[in-house]
Design a protein around this nucleic acid. Structure first.
Lengths: 335, 335
DNA sequence: TTTGAGTGTGGAAACGTTTCCAGAGTATAG
DNA sequence: CTATACTCTGGAAACGTTTCCACACTCAAA
């Protein structure tokens, strides 16, 4: 059986309160007393029981993160940032992976993490009125990343402006017929980036008095293969676009696959711009909007941690992380 | 303030012990009593305090996973399998990401998770004598995935045999000069797959009386770019290999990059075989050893969970997950 | 010397559960 | 009608901490 604080107290010849003070770094302990206690702790290999500690302090030193599709690079990179920041602050990180509507509803319906968490990060998942309502009732500090909701602190990028920037880059390089490929505009889990980026795409065209052609907009599914299929459809049009803006790098990879499979040159014959800047994108020379994913994770985690150590101070309502366009050969071929 | 079991008991007009019995599904409760209690729980929105529960039961309902490089696809896929299985069993999952030797030593030196976990999964990280010693002292159930250690249950694949199979596939298709590219044989964290796969590579050659040429073996770093560099070195040899076996798909992608950059055809001019079977590998038509990553995660998690619910029954010492070779055009061009 | 503040310490209450134990009630067998 | 067994229930102990409170002591000021 593991030792308790009483064993330590007895061995050190002090009271349990003093041991507790030593453990928690209270200043009011005589140096020689502290040393005796530390020696006893060392000798017994004593470890404070976390459950007992939590029970009395009502803190768990744990934060949770709910995220969709643990497997997709974007979410993993953000998670990595969160993990780094959380570990550094000596908190634990519990993850809840959501891959279906039922799972999401299970988590937000039952809130199974309720007693176990000091705070929660929700990544990319939009929260509906029901979820917000339930969350607000239990007063658990929440921070959102890559999604927004009334009144909750959020770390986001400006998808509209970023997309507009990407499309304007294409326009500046002489393109007038620009396709947009993305995943479903209204996906099951309600993730809205594809919609927001569509708005930016349309804004760029409108600004330059280019007519918006519905045939150039293909919103179907996620992933590389679907991106390739969408591109195939675009290139089979009577008047195909000369440039393609993809709402994700994975889709853009698919576009490049299709272009190359047709014996055409990416950048030369058809320009491609993506969104995310995955590790592979620079290898493939894909022009893309760089999202600082790890930084978004760190930023969100930090906001939550700050709020935990400083409960009265309000968290910043909305933190916009700047993005930038990485211009590579897929849109501007080397001369 | 949140309600306690006492509030529920008072409202339902029963004792706290009865409420506890209802919560924990004890059979000896009169149906109408149970209903009164459930109604009270519902009305108050009562949730049992986890810390109090843990304190008295000495169980946390949480398992931890220590894994390196949260960002690499292989580890993420395995983690996903673990998460799925753990969530299904109504356990929480705490993750500890290790990206440096210091971090690993911090985790295994202090075992900061000690009081918070019912069990631990170690993914891919080899454990030294010191770590094993410490772990055995604290009697925390441990399961290893993709790594092995004296006496601890482990879920692994047979890297040697798998590599041998991959190389023999190349030999059968007429290749005699076969290169092997991989990450460092003795990396910082001690991960040993590259070494094991090298042994399989050598065994295949030896079996077919092919001389092992040290120039054909390039162990440098991880990732796609390094794979490309290794391939460049191989192809610049006076007598370059006609086939390349890469210890990871990421490395194989780099090899394909370099081959294509030289205007040669993958599969036609140089054959490439990888290891992992990432999502992208089928798109790129890469022949590769398929590792059922998610399944490995699930399998390891299940072994741990079984052991937790059944402490006396010994866990299977070594579970070997079968792998298979996925033959695609990178080694056998379509005719 | 007395007062007062300040420092170091220990005992005990409190946190919210689970579970042991005992008791009340009911049904069954002798 | 009593003895026995079984079911349902409630009180209270126990889990291992933190923290409140009280006490003893030291030292400086009055």
């Amino acid at each position: 059986m593991a030792h308790t604080i009483k064993d330590v107290a007895r061995l050190a010849g002090v009271g349990i309160a003093t041991v507790s003070r030593v453990i928690n770094g209270s200043p009011n302990v005589l140096p020689r007393t502290r040393e005796r206690v530390l020696a006893a702790i060392e000798e017994l290999g004593y470890r404070p029981n976390q459950a007992a500690r939590q029970l009395v302090t009502a803190r768990t030193n744990t934060i949770g993160v709910v995220l969709p599709f643990l497997t997709r690079p974007f979410f993993v990179e953000v998670l990595r940032g969160i993990e780094a920041e959380v570990a550094q602050a000596n908190y634990q990180l519990i993850i809840f992976n959501v891959e279906s509507v039922e799972q999401r509803d299970r988590y937000f319906g039952h809130l199974p993490f309720l007693g176990r968490l000091d705070g929660l990060i929700v990544l990319s998942l939009p929260l509906g009125a029901a979820e917000l309502d339930r969350l607000s009732k239990v007063d658990l500090p929440v921070v959102l990343i890559d999604t927004e909701a009334h009144n909750l602190p959020a770390v986001v990028i400006d998808n509209e402006t970023a997309a507009q920037m990407a499309v304007e880059h294409l326009i500046e390089h002489g393109h007038q017929r620009i396709g947009y490929i993305c995943g479903p505009l209204y996906p099951e889990l309600g993730i809205s980036v594809n919609r927001e980026r569509l708005i930016g795409y349309e804004a760029a065209l409108r600004t330059h008095n280019i007519e918006i052609c519905q045939d150039y907009i293909r919103a179907s599914g996620d992933g590389r293969e679907v991106g390739r299929a969408s591109t195939k459809a675009l290139l089979n049009l009577a008047t195909p676009p000369t440039a393609i803006f993809a709402a994700s790098d994975e889709q853009a990879f698919g576009a490049m696959d299709e272009i190359q499979a047709r014996g055409m040159q990416v950048g030369q014959d058809i320009a491609v711009v993506g969104f995310d800047d995955l590790e592979m994108s620079s290898y493939l020379q894909l022009t893309t909007v760089h999202q600082p994913m790890e930084r978004m994770g760190r930023s969100g985690a930090r906001i939550l941690l700050d709020r935990l150590s400083n409960p009265d101070q309000p968290a910043p309502r909305r933190t916009v992380i700047p993005v930038e366009l990485c211009v590579r050969q897929s849109s501007v071929p080397k001369s």
